[in-house]
Amino acid sequence: PDLGLTQLFADPNLIENLKKNPKTSEMMKDPQLVAKLIGYKQNPQAIGQDLFTDPRLMTIMATLMGVDL
């Protein structure tokens, strides 16, 4: 199971919303991170391994779920 990750990354406004959010806007200036996020739309399971190697993803996930870290 993808634990709902498919829906989190399926939002067509995902990148724009993250660019507008004060907690994630600075991160979204990294083209490699943006490319990763776009890739998760097609393969949400890929985030599982990346969560352990890129701490920014935890902040992004929390933001998408509405959790304040």
Score class of each variant (00 low, 15 high):
residue 69 L to Y: 03
residue 30 D to K: 00
residue 3 L to K: 11
residue 64 L to R: 01
residue 56 R to W: 07
residue 40 Y to N: 02
residue 45 Q to P: 05
residue 22 P to D: 05
residue 13 N to E: 10
residue 5 L to C: 09
residue 45 Q to L: 12
residue 42 Q to N: 15
residue 55 P to F: 07
residue 31 P to N: 08
residue 68 D to M: 02
residue 63 T to M: 13
residue 62 A to S: 10
residue 45 Q to M: 12
residue 25 S to Q: 10
residue 38 I to N: 13
residue 66 G to P: 06
residue 63 T to S: 08
residue 25 S to M: 11
residue 36 K to A: 08
residue 10 A to N: 13
residue 12 P to Q: 07
residue 3 L to Q: 13
residue 38 I to E: 14
residue 36 K to Q: 10
residue 47 I to S: 05
residue 32 Q to H: 13
residue 16 E to P: 05
residue 59 T to C: 08
residue 7 Q to N: 11
residue 4 G to Q: 15
residue 34 V to R: 04
residue 31 P to L: 09
residue 24 T to G: 01
residue 34 V to I: 14
residue 9 F to Q: 01
residue 29 K to Q: 10
residue 55 P to E: 10
residue 4 G to Y: 15
residue 1 P to I: 11
residue 66 G to C: 08
residue 40 Y to F: 11
residue 40 Y to D: 01
residue 62 A to W: 10
residue 4 G to M: 14
residue 30 D to H: 02
residue 42 Q to W: 05
residue 23 K to V: 13
residue 27 M to N: 01
residue 50 D to H: 05
residue 15 I to L: 09
residue 52 F to T: 08
residue 27 M to L: 13
residue 16 E to M: 07
residue 12 P to V: 07
residue 57 L to T: 02
residue 18 L to W: 01
residue 33 L to C: 02
residue 3 L to T: 11
residue 60 I to C: 02
residue 51 L to C: 08
residue 18 L to T: 00
residue 1 P to R: 02
residue 9 F to R: 01
residue 65 M to K: 08
residue 59 T to A: 10
residue 24 T to R: 00
residue 13 N to D: 12
residue 10 A to S: 14
residue 13 N to K: 09
residue 67 V to W: 15
residue 66 G to D: 12
residue 28 M to R: 00
residue 21 N to E: 05
residue 39 G to R: 12
residue 3 L to V: 13
residue 7 Q to W: 06
residue 13 N to Q: 11
residue 38 I to P: 01
residue 10 A to L: 13
residue 36 K to D: 04
residue 64 L to S: 02
residue 13 N to W: 06
residue 11 D to A: 03
residue 14 L to C: 05
residue 37 L to S: 00
residue 42 Q to Y: 11
residue 46 A to Q: 13
residue 11 D to C: 04
residue 35 A to W: 03
residue 1 P to V: 15
residue 35 A to N: 09
residue 54 D to Y: 02
residue 49 Q to Y: 12
residue 21 N to R: 03
residue 40 Y to S: 02
residue 22 P to W: 04
residue 13 N to Y: 10
residue 69 L to H: 14
residue 64 L to H: 03
residue 47 I to C: 05
residue 63 T to D: 03
residue 15 I to M: 06
residue 26 E to V: 07
residue 63 T to R: 03
residue 10 A to K: 10
residue 17 N to P: 01
residue 38 I to L: 15
residue 8 L to D: 02
residue 37 L to A: 00
residue 68 D to C: 03
residue 27 M to I: 09
residue 5 L to V: 09
residue 23 K to C: 08
residue 20 K to E: 08
residue 60 I to L: 05
residue 1 P to C: 10
residue 2 D to T: 15
residue 20 K to P: 00
residue 33 L to N: 01
residue 37 L to V: 06
residue 32 Q to V: 13
residue 53 T to D: 14
residue 49 Q to H: 13
residue 52 F to R: 12
residue 1 P to T: 14
residue 47 I to R: 04
residue 2 D to E: 13
residue 49 Q to I: 13
residue 60 I to N: 00
residue 19 K to L: 10
residue 49 Q to L: 12
residue 62 A to C: 09
residue 65 M to P: 04
residue 49 Q to V: 14
residue 33 L to V: 04
residue 25 S to K: 11
residue 6 T to N: 14
residue 24 T to Q: 00
residue 65 M to H: 07
residue 33 L to P: 00
residue 7 Q to G: 11
residue 61 M to I: 15
residue 21 N to D: 09
residue 28 M to D: 00
residue 22 P to I: 06
residue 65 M to F: 09
residue 53 T to G: 08
residue 44 P to R: 03
residue 41 K to G: 14
residue 56 R to C: 04
residue 23 K to R: 13
residue 10 A to F: 09
residue 35 A to D: 12
residue 47 I to F: 15
residue 40 Y to K: 01
residue 12 P to A: 09
residue 14 L to A: 05
residue 61 M to N: 01
residue 30 D to P: 00
residue 58 M to I: 15
residue 30 D to E: 03
residue 4 G to D: 15
residue 25 S to P: 00
residue 35 A to L: 10
residue 21 N to M: 05
residue 43 N to T: 06
residue 35 A to C: 05
residue 22 P to L: 05
residue 9 F to E: 01
residue 8 L to C: 07
residue 22 P to E: 08
residue 56 R to V: 08
residue 4 G to W: 15
residue 46 A to G: 11
residue 46 A to K: 12
residue 1 P to K: 03
residue 29 K to P: 00
residue 66 G to Q: 09
residue 28 M to K: 00
residue 6 T to Q: 15
residue 35 A to E: 14
residue 4 G to F: 15
residue 43 N to H: 08
residue 51 L to G: 05
residue 23 K to E: 07
residue 48 G to S: 15
residue 20 K to I: 09
residue 19 K to Y: 06
residue 34 V to G: 02
residue 21 N to G: 03
residue 43 N to S: 06
residue 62 A to V: 14
residue 62 A to L: 15
residue 3 L to A: 14
residue 28 M to H: 00
residue 53 T to L: 11
residue 35 A to V: 07
residue 54 D to P: 00
residue 40 Y to W: 08
residue 41 K to Q: 15
residue 69 L to W: 03
residue 19 K to Q: 11
residue 11 D to H: 04
residue 35 A to H: 06
residue 15 I to F: 06
residue 41 K to A: 15
residue 67 V to R: 07
residue 49 Q to C: 10
residue 54 D to M: 01
residue 13 N to T: 07
residue 10 A to E: 11
residue 61 M to A: 11
residue 18 L to H: 00
residue 69 L to D: 15
